[in-house]
Amino acid sequence: MLIMGEVRTGLLQNSAEIEERDHQTVLGLLAGERVRMSRRPIVYAVSPDLLTGVDCRLPSASNARIRGVGTLVSRATITGGRILQGSSYVRVVRGEVNHRLPWSHYLARPGVVEVLGKVSAPDLAGGFLAFGPPGEQLDLGSVSDRFMDVVQESALLDLRAPFRSDRTRLRWVAETGEPGVHFILGESTGRTLRLTHHGEFSPAVVDLCEDLALHDWLLTALLTIVQRARIGGASRPEVSARLAPAVDTLLHLWMPGARIHPSLAPLWENLERTPGFSRQWQSLVERVRDQLAVNTLALLRETNG
């Protein structure tokens, strides 16, 4: 009846982009399963799906006590050898009985949480997207976060990332209906997304949410770098040095909608109109490039003059 998920996005803790052949080691979180990769238009690798069992209260806007039992599906992805995402989601359905069944029952339904008792989808979605304080409720985000940690712990990474950055968290809910999408940028690192799509839920919806989270993180990271560069406030070489990681690491990673199923493409186009991700990105990129160009010219003048 309702799908909800949380994507966390951050920078892979390595000084350089990781090599293609290293993805299997870094993302091989399940013995006997290969990491899937695609190389066009950008190197993208995804770990095998991982399950986590839960039995807890579900979020509720009305603070109702709703108990759910089942498993979450999680996976970790690396884009461009640079950006790491941990993503978890769950399909919430009404259980057939009001008591907990043997665990094997839930294991036979991976990615499904069954509600014991009554539940309303809007109440659940409202509670989930509210980003309440962490507590006894289902915590998809920390599961996503945990799998990111596992990846970052890989012995292959040198932990010398080109710049410090915060992980962003995107919570999303998806339902079947007339296609629509609503994205809200929170004050801190939290973002929410409500989307409705035609037909049954498919993992393509998760791909869309991950792609959106990825580009939102890119934009956030670039904005932070530009703000910190203190253009106009600091000296030219300082500004250039502070902008350099953005050019080295981020600018070439912008490819919105590259892996999105065609049926969901219109939703991305909606987001491009409002809030207009690519517009903001373009103007930031131009600002960075202009600054670097101006600073280089100034430097040349100084050395020549």
């Binding site: 013995a31 006997g32 069992g53 839960v54 039995d55 209260r57 665990w103 006894e136 915590d139 945990r146």
Partner: peptide, 23 residues
């Protein structure tokens, strides 16, 4: 050459006690 026990261990999804809300 296939570590079967490890293969199965990685596929364990522990039965969560009530109150398990996360990892």
């Amino acid at each position: 050459g296939v570590k079967l026990a490890k293969l199965v261990e990685d596929r364990l999804v522990p039965d969560p006690p009530p109150g398990t809300h996360s990892w």
